[in-house]
């Protein structure tokens, strides 16, 4: 039992070391070579544009839900004007970056892991190596960078859609005054603490998801089971990593 735990923690440590090495290789590739703009654009399309519907829809729904829940509590204290602040702060500081990251991990991260794992299975990465092309440079780096680029943009869109959803429910459904909703939101959201904090989180999560998805695909077994394991692994490990990372970021940022 204890032996098993020891062994398992060693395995985790080994993976952490390898991920760090892998991250270093990606960074070296991104710094060292002329950017593969065409491939990055294609990957931004796959990861970003294709994630847009799910992110926007979730944003509207989450914002609306927050308004509904917040209203029932606030109205007891006669503070329904503060609804804007509640929706704004929770969406910007926490839900926006975290939920976007979880959605993108499920939607784009898993797709990237599956694509790279399939390339391992069908020897496409070995094919690149035999052409003296580094797969980390040619396939992995553009995808990791694309996720890093896409995450803050999608988080921004998620937040705007969530605020719209929240505003819509509050003003249209619950009869809160639109002006005071916006004023309370604008009054409580701070640029440095909330907006910058939010996008630092989104960028961190983007890097994390990009790294986990590409790494998990890259090390997958060259079988069909390997592809599915890579996909599942990316979603599970990626989501948990995002939540843990969020906890520590909140701690460092000073809640």
């Amino acid at each position: 039992m204890i032996e098993n735990m020891g062994y398992r923690s060693l395995v985790v440590l080994e993976h952490l070391g390898k991920i760090a090495q892998f991250a270093l290789r990606i960074v070296v590739c991104l710094l060292g070579r002329p950017y593969r703009i065409r491939r990055i654009v294609a990957d931004v399309y796959d990861a970003g544009v294709l994630s847009l519907p799910v992110v926007c829809l979730s944003g509207v729904v989450v914002g609306g839900t927050l308004s509904l829940l917040g209203y029932t509590t606030l109205v007891r204290f006669g503070a329904e004007e503060a609804l804007g602040a509640l929706v704004g702060l929770s969406v910007i500081r926490e839900l926006g970056p975290v939920l976007t990251a979880l959605l993108v991990t499920g939607r784009a991260g898993s797709a990237i892991a599956a694509e790279i794992a399939t390339m391992v299975t069908t020897e496409q990465l070995d094919g690149l190596r035999m052409m003296s092309v580094d797969p980390v440079d040619f396939v992995v780096s553009p995808k990791a960078l694309a996720l890093l680029i896409v995450m803050p943009l999608l988080a921004g869109l998620f937040i705007v859609f969530a605020l719209m959803g929240g505003y819509g429910v509050a003003v249209g459904l619950l009869g809160v005054d639109g002006g005071s909703f916006m004023a309370s939101m604008e009054g409580s959201v701070k640029f440095w603490n909330d907006v910058i904090g939010s996008f630092s989180k989104a960028i961190t999560f983007g890097a994390l998801t990009g790294l986990i998805a590409t790494y998990r695909g890259y090390i997958s077994e060259p079988t069909a089971a390997g592809v599915s394991a890579a996909t599942t692994g990316t979603v599970v490990v990626g989501s948990v990593a995002i939540l843990i990372c969020d906890f520590f970021l909140n701690g460092f940022w000073g809640v």
């Binding site: 704004g88 910007i92 937040i159 701070k190 640029f191 909330d194 907006v195």
Partner: peptide, 8 residues
Amino acid sequence: LSIELGGL
């Protein structure tokens, strides 16, 4: 978000 809400 930065300019309108954040007050930057």
